[in-house]
Amino acid sequence: MTDQPYEGQQQYQQGYDPYWQQPQHQSQPQPQHQQQSWPGQQQGYEDPQAAQQYTQQWQGQTWETQAQAPVAPAADTSYAPQQAYAEPPAPVATPPQAPVTSGYGPASIGGNARITDAQRARLEGRSPVIEPGMQPAALTALLGLLLAGTAAVGSYALLVPLVALQAVTAAGWFRLNGMWPARQGIALAFLGALVADVALLASDHAPSAILGTLGVWVLLSLVLQLRSHADADTRMYGLMATVASAALAIIASGYLAAAADAVTVGAASVAVAVLARALPLPTPASVVVSLLAAAGAGIAVGGMTDLGSEGALLGAGAGMCALIGHRVASYDYPSRFVHFTAGVALPLAAAAPTVYVLGRALG
């Protein structure tokens, strides 16, 4: 047995060189006797090519094993060292941005939300009050003239434009308060108005019919909100909106309870006052012009009825209430839908109690 180690074993001890190739001049035959074995070898190879093939295969496995990244001990990776967190930097004041001057911003998933004209006005430091404009005023005037004309015909004829007024009042108030859709509240308020109309047609005592219906509908609104599963603040807000909407729709029934001449003068005065308010004038001047126009319409229409010149007082009172309703419909977050519902109905609905009270006082 020779004392020289086997060629593959010698390469194992010296390490593997990936660029080493076996010399081409090796031509001496390998010894025929059994060679010394190493761990993992069961028996020697007497064929030199077989031994070379085995050695190269074993070296290839050794090179792949050495190429792997070393694995850190478990003790070194069990716990990460605690890091110290620096305090957050102080907030830096941002320079004021230029006021927004485009229309609605494009909707996107990235969060570019649409802003209303009222929100833009608040960002710019202006008043969020946006008046409905001439088109809603024209619709108010048309509905007012319908009330004035049908009142001279009879109560049942007056009922047609009055029901339309009550429906628009109920829907517009909910939308003005940002509660949309609110089908149950709108339906409840409109139903209360219809019940008040029926009670007025069946009873000779108008205050009892209106106040009784209003009291019952407050209780129904309370029961409706108690059945809601929303939080307490949302239920309270819904209760107030429902009660106010029902009250406005029911109070509009005062046109049905008032004298026919008073309805004619009052509704015509509201129509003229709203049209004058929509003129492009400064707000103080517009208010004065509207009141004067309402009083003038009261005198003109009163001369065609039994009220005569006393219609000026009725016209001025109805016009003042109409301006209050117009102002309410212009506040906070109005939209085009609000302007064509609350902006149309609230001036006429707000004037109904004045028409009833002044009509009885002057008649």
Rank of each mutant, 00 (worst) to 15 (best):
W58R: 08
F174H: 06
A138Y: 02
P280D: 06
V71C: 01
L147A: 03
R122Q: 15
Q28R: 11
A72L: 12
L224H: 02
V289W: 10
A148E: 02
I115K: 12
T101L: 05
L139V: 15
L239R: 04
Q61Y: 12
D3I: 09
Q59Y: 12
A257H: 00
L279H: 00
R122E: 15
G343V: 11
V129S: 09
S78N: 04
E87F: 14
L248V: 01
G185V: 01
W217D: 02
G298K: 04
P81A: 13
P334D: 04
T62M: 11
T62C: 11
L142T: 14
A312Q: 02
A349F: 05
A167T: 00
A206R: 08
A182R: 05
Q49H: 03
G125D: 12
Y12I: 09
L220D: 00
L201V: 10
P23A: 01
A93P: 02
V223N: 00
R126V: 02
Q53E: 11
A260V: 08
R120N: 07
G308Y: 04
R327A: 15
E46K: 07
A244L: 13
S102K: 04
P91A: 14
Q28L: 09
Y16C: 06
G303E: 13
P284C: 00
Y255K: 01
F337A: 15
G125I: 03
Q10S: 09
G111M: 01
G266C: 04
P207E: 03
P132W: 08
D204K: 10
A148H: 05
R122H: 06
Q10F: 07
L201Y: 04
Q184F: 09
D231Q: 02
L176G: 10
Q225L: 00
A268R: 04
P106D: 14
V163G: 13
E46G: 15
G298L: 03
A351Y: 09
Y156D: 12
Q56R: 04
Q66W: 14
G298I: 02
D261C: 06
L194P: 02
I186C: 07
V216Q: 00
Y255F: 13
I210H: 11
D197H: 07
V198R: 05
G154T: 07
T116I: 14
P96W: 01
A152G: 15
I130E: 13
G154K: 00
L162H: 03
V163K: 00
V160C: 07
V92D: 07
A271K: 06
Y19V: 11
A84H: 12
A209V: 08
A342E: 10
E46H: 15
T341N: 07
L219R: 01
P81M: 03
S108T: 15
L275S: 05
L211Q: 03
P29W: 07
Y79T: 14
H339R: 13
T305H: 08
E64T: 15
Y12R: 13
R183W: 12
L346T: 06
S127W: 02
W20I: 10
Q57V: 07
R235V: 00
